[in-house]
Amino acid sequence: MNMNYRTLFLALTFALLVLPAGLSSAQRIENLPGYFDFDELERIVGAETTLEVNFKGAILRMAAEAARIEDDTLADMLLKLKGIQVRGYTLDRDARKALENRIGPLFRQMTDGGWERVVRVRNDGEFVEMLIRDTTGERVEGLIVFVIGGGENETVFVNIVGEIDPEDIGRLGRRFRIGALEVL
């Protein structure tokens, strides 16, 4: 009987120690369905990243609070997001062509894994893919945009993680467009 109590006590202690760690790992952005791991993509690109943006957690909330001074809609939208990742590359024409040919299997792998392709453009040296992730059928939980444009600095990949309203992104994005894309 004493042995049983001791076993129970040890099990409870173990559970108390392990459970919080498990909960915190469940909330990590890497475990969210809308997260995309850029590691494999970087391997496929095979070039040095020239633009890297990683916003999550505190910095995203700070940005949301900063946005609230001028724009409540943007602030509310940012508070629903869990992360924003951007990668940019400087690629010459041949490298861009090669990348377009190599990246196909990655998209198939993604669509097999639950990502849904909503935009696909192959036109005149322009390559665009947009995929969304919606595991609940109620809201978009992740969005990825792959752009391999016609210029050297126009290869950009974006992953937005969290509750996303595409209308908000379109509306807000249009507002910020003047001047913002000049760096692209």
Binding site: A67, V147, V158, I169, G170, G173, F176
Partner: peptide, 19 residues
């Protein structure tokens, strides 16, 4: 961070519209 987020949103919006 906010400036880069705005840039990212603008990019996504631009891509969607162009598509």
């Amino acid at each position: 961070a906010l400036a880069q987020i705005k840039w990212t949103l603008a990019l996504v919006s631009e891509v969607t519209e162009r598509s």
